[in-house]
């Protein structure tokens, strides 16, 4: 399956968990994974549908990661992931994967489940998609840079 599923039970309410996930993203994101040249200073998830999801470097430069597809605090967040395998931003939504995070009460805590799906979209070649020959599973081509990095 081309998806990642991760789940964690936290000893806190869903409101707090959702807040930490969105407002304090930079405090828990593995800092080595960023696309700007300077070190990572902040990661912003704008608190509304169609909001931006971007990093800010210590040099002040902003680099987009994706966008907010659904903003439903404190139960659910759906993000579009526009970074390909080379950690390059690709603005085409047809070539973006998505990350869905749900926050569900469990006992005294909150179950946070994360699903990152549709990686195959990062391989889709836009002109092929428009021609309607993308074929099974949405494959339409390959990002050459991605192949370089991962195959």
């Amino acid at each position: 399956m081309t998806e990642v599923r991760r789940s964690v039970l936290v000893n806190a309410g869903a409101d707090h968990a959702f807040k930490v996930f969105t407002e304090k993203f930079v405090t828990w994101w593995p800092a080595g994974h960023h696309i700007g040249e300077a070190d990572l200073k902040d990661v912003v998830v704008e608190p509304f549908q169609h909001g931006r999801w971007y990093e800010v470097g210590t040099d002040g430069a902003e680099c987009d990661w994706g966008s907010v597809k659904a903003w439903e605090p404190p139960a659910r967040l759906l993000l579009a992931w526009h970074l390909n395998g080379d950690w390059d931003y690709d603005p085409d939504p047809a070539r973006a994967s998505e990350v869905e995070i749900t926050f569900t009460a469990e006992g005294d805590g909150t179950r946070v489940e994360l699903v990152h799906r549709n990686f195959e979209r990062h391989f889709v070649k836009p002109e092929r998609l428009r021609e309607g020959v993308s074929g099974e599973g949405g494959w339409g081509g390959i990002l050459l840079g991605f192949a370089k990095a991962f195959v």
Binding site: L9, W29, H33, H116, H122, F150
Partner: peptide, 23 residues
């Protein structure tokens, strides 16, 4: 290629959520 990207992001999100729970 897709499988490699999946494995890589599985790793990143695994680290991220462990940190997240701590915060």
């Amino acid at each position: 290629g897709v499988a490699a990207m999946r494995d890589y992001l599985d790793d990143v999100w695994g680290q991220a959520l462990a940190n997240f729970a701590a915060v």
